Amino acid sequence: MKKVQQASESFLVAAILTLSGGFMDAYSYLCREQVFANAQTGNILLFGINLSTGNFADALRYFIPILAFAFGVAIAEIVRNCFRNKKYLHWRQVTLLAEIVALFVVAFIPQDLNLLANSLISFACGAQVESFRKVNGNGIATTMCIGNLRAATQAICNYGLTKNLTSKQDGFLYFSIIVIFIMGAIIGNFCVGIWQEKSIIVSAILLSVGFVCMLIPKED
């Protein structure tokens, strides 16, 4: 296992953010008219299908979150360039704060403004996927599973062929992240059933815990 270089790339922070990622996707799908917060491939597919059938209103319902996701990625990149040399606050903490604020706002958006709610969640996911891309030196995603599933399968196959222990450890790392994402979705489903729109505050609290964990000084 590769050595952790900074708190934002630790397994603990990745686990917390992945739990929140699974929660956000479950929330947006179950509570906000079946739009995916993280899986923009699904939104792009549904956008294309609705566009082809002339359901332009429904197509817009998927297209705006796609743009919001891209905007989140762009904002994270701008923040990285503006704060990369700041010693008092890491640029990833800035993007995390933006996510937390966005999710708290979503909690108070009524159902008749689901497009706005889904756009803010997608914005948060875009910022997160751009800001947190490594765990212990391994490329990883905390808001989606397809890349993690590919990497996990590749690593386990490499271990089977070469008996390389690093490949085995990497495979279990990726599979662990996938399991945590599923746990986030399960928790999201449970919380939506109880608190409905307000349940997204749980995701914001998880991100707040991740923010605190990032205050831990990096290892030598």
Results as ranks from 00 to 15, higher is better:
Gly171Leu: 09
Phe175Trp: 14
Gln128Asn: 11
Thr142Lys: 02
Gln154Trp: 10
Ser131Lys: 04
Asn164His: 13
Cys145Ser: 06
Phe190Ile: 10
Lys168Arg: 15
Ala185Trp: 05
Ile178Pro: 08
Asn138Leu: 08
Ile146Cys: 04
Ile177Gly: 00
Asn158Cys: 15
Phe172Val: 03
Val135His: 03
Ala127Cys: 10
Asn158Ile: 07
Thr166Asp: 15
Arg133Asp: 08
Ile140His: 09
Phe181Val: 02
Thr153Tyr: 10
Glu130Asn: 03
Cys157His: 12
Ile186Ser: 01
Asn189Met: 09
Leu161Val: 14
Met144Cys: 03
Ile180Phe: 01
Thr162Gly: 11
Met183Glu: 00
Ile140Val: 15
Ile140Cys: 06
Ala127Trp: 12
Leu165Met: 15
Cys145Tyr: 01
Gly147Asn: 12
Ala155Ser: 15
Gln128Val: 10
Ile180Val: 12
Gly137Asp: 00
Leu173Ile: 06
Thr142Phe: 04
Val129Glu: 13
Tyr174Asn: 02
Met183Gly: 07
Thr166Arg: 10
Ala185His: 06
Gly139Gln: 04
Ala185Thr: 07
Phe132Thr: 09
Thr142Gln: 06
Asn136Gln: 07
Leu173Met: 11
Val135Ala: 02
Phe132Gln: 02
Met183Pro: 00
Lys168Glu: 11
Ala141Tyr: 05
Asp170Pro: 00
Thr143Ile: 11
Ala127Ile: 06
Asn189Cys: 08
Gly160Trp: 13
Gln128His: 09
Asn164Glu: 15
Asn158His: 14
Ser131Cys: 07
Ser167Cys: 12
Val129Cys: 09
Asn148Lys: 08
Met183Val: 11
Gln154Arg: 15
Arg133Cys: 07
Val135Trp: 03
Phe181Met: 05
Lys168Asn: 10
Thr143Ser: 09
Ser176His: 03
Asp170Lys: 15
Tyr174Trp: 07
Leu161Asp: 13
Gln154Gly: 12
Ala127Thr: 12
Phe181Pro: 01
Val129Gln: 13
